[in-house]
Design a protein around this nucleic acid. Sequence first.
RNA 1: GGAGCCAUAGCUCAAUUGGUUAGAGCGCCUCCCUGUCACGGAGGAGGUUGCGGGUUCGAGCCCCGUUGGCUCCGCCA
Length: 621
Amino acid sequence: MSNPYRSHTCNDLRATHAGQTVRLAGWIHNKRDLGGVLFIDLRDHYGITQIVIPPTAGFQDTLSHLPKETVISVHGLVRPRPEGTVNPNISTGEVELDVQGYDLLGSCQPLPMNVFPEDHTPEETRLKYRFLDLRRTKLHQTVMLRAKVISSIRRRMIELGFQEFQTPILTSSSPEGARDFLVPSRLYPGEFYALPQAPQQFKQLLMVSGFDRYFQIAPCFRDEDGRADRTPGEFYQLDVEMSFVTQDDVFAAIEKLMIPLFTEFKAEWPINATPEGAFVRIPYKESMLRFGTDKPDMRIPFEISDLTPLFAKSEFKAFAGKTVRAFAVPQAFDQPRSWFDNLQEEAKKLGAPGLAYVKAEAMLSPESTGGYGIKLSGPVSKFLEKDPEVYAGLVALIAASTAYDPANKLSYLDRISPTVIFFSADANETKAAKVLGAMRVKIAEQLNLIEKNVFKFAWIVDYPMFELHEETKAVEFSHNPFSMPQGGLEALEKQDPLTIYAYQYDLVCNGYEVASGAIRNHRPEIMYKAFALAGHDQTVVDTEFAGMINAFKYGAPPHGGIAPGIDRIVMLLADEHSIREVIAFPMAQNGRDLLMNAPSPVSEKQLKEVHLTIRKPVPKV
RNA sequence: GGAGCCAUAGCUCAAUUGGUUAGAGCGCCUCCCUGUCACGGAGGAGGUUGCGGGUUCGAGCCCCGUUGGCUCCGCCA
């Protein structure tokens, strides 16, 4: 009846247990052999207990030679630690176990990495021996945090009136979006299932079926390459869909989830929500201008300004007639030349011709305008000084970017602190914006200007419904083809497609896209029209989205939803910068599982069963 | 598909411009030590410098290729 391995966990014993005979089981965390007495820290999931093996015990020498991470079970007498030897760092530190006997439950070979102490270890080793890495306190607790976050999300979603559903894992390939993972069919030679990129169509069908409020912690599969914040292959979404809602209703529901959730796990980090509990909303176009990205990190204290009009007729050929964006960073003023050179290289890697900058500081200029002015220096300063209009524009930018209190009657000169203005110019507006957006983050990281211990959320709204294909110049969907265009059918019929916005939105936090969603297009006639504008006729919709468009013809409610990324939420709450730190068994960046050796070849028999022959790529000569 | 960075003992790192026998800490092994908790002390084993080629009197260091990992671009409706 009693458990053969343990009567208590390694976090149970307190002074009140003194005198009891107990049994503990766990890993040998650390050993201290003092010659006479032997101390072993025994560790399990719950904690650490010090066990003591006296010299009189016949097995002391054997235990002393068991390597770290051996699994043992010990029994003995709980006793208070002698005066002055209490360890306040562990919760069981008032007591120790006087061991009377032990069982060896799992022996341990020489370790490829230390579990304790938690030395820095290359990620390759950590991924290959993930089961050891997961024993270490840091990762063990992150994985526990993830478990608690998911549990909290489930509880909160149910409290908010949502129901959890399952949807198929083996489904059909969808022509839009990322590359699919395919699963060959045994019963239907030459046909394939696809793993879902998201349960998108299923959750919409659940709304058509009248279920009203759906959620699921859903695995999503996309055959795309990894990044620091994106796993290759698979990830988890909190998939959400609601009927009879507007965009505002979806926002309100998610705000009611996210703010309490983030507060539960990081109470000490402020969240930039209104007193009513709403996140700021930023239109997509505005975000691209102010931050050069649609996932702005608003912890960075400087923003981008548009200087295009200033240079419209400039003689400075590098800027003239192009989209010119700029930001000022006072903290960069004292950086060495090599630092600026390095930034140039970074900008070039992003496809920019370079990164123009000019140093600016206040000066007394008795000769010219009114006794003060801005002195410019640096590689392009002479081009910028020449044009009075450009010069005035830069002065305005500097004044605006320099922190000062307007009520304080400081002189103009005092308000201007030395600063550096960085420029990006490109004939392509998007490219000019994106390059400077990337440099904004890079510079803020390098100069340590990103505000710490804070969550800055924003809704990015009003995504364009359509955009021009870069090469063909054809109109195509810019995001989700299932989104409802703002203005409905009338907008599609009368407006220039490129001016139509979609009810499509992202939630961003600290520079990460944490959720993406839309109010869906549930009206077949609007769907056909939207696809027609993107160059697809009705048969394309009817064949490729047959299940959904068909359902919409039998009474579909207006509906919309969103899908927050679970991995990224945990990443933010764990204050980690690599998504692999919040996943128990992540793949390496190249999509390989170093622990399980996936992907791996399969037998000829297995291939035959699913009617496949392998066509290997021809090696390059 | 492309670019950059990294690879030295089981692990973390060192090794001046290319120059003697490639070092240290942790871990491991042996021994000493009865109150430690990152215990302490003495000694020892452990290396084809990821792999293949090249330059050189001489390569851990320079060059080319390759493998693996990371970061980024493309990709991510």
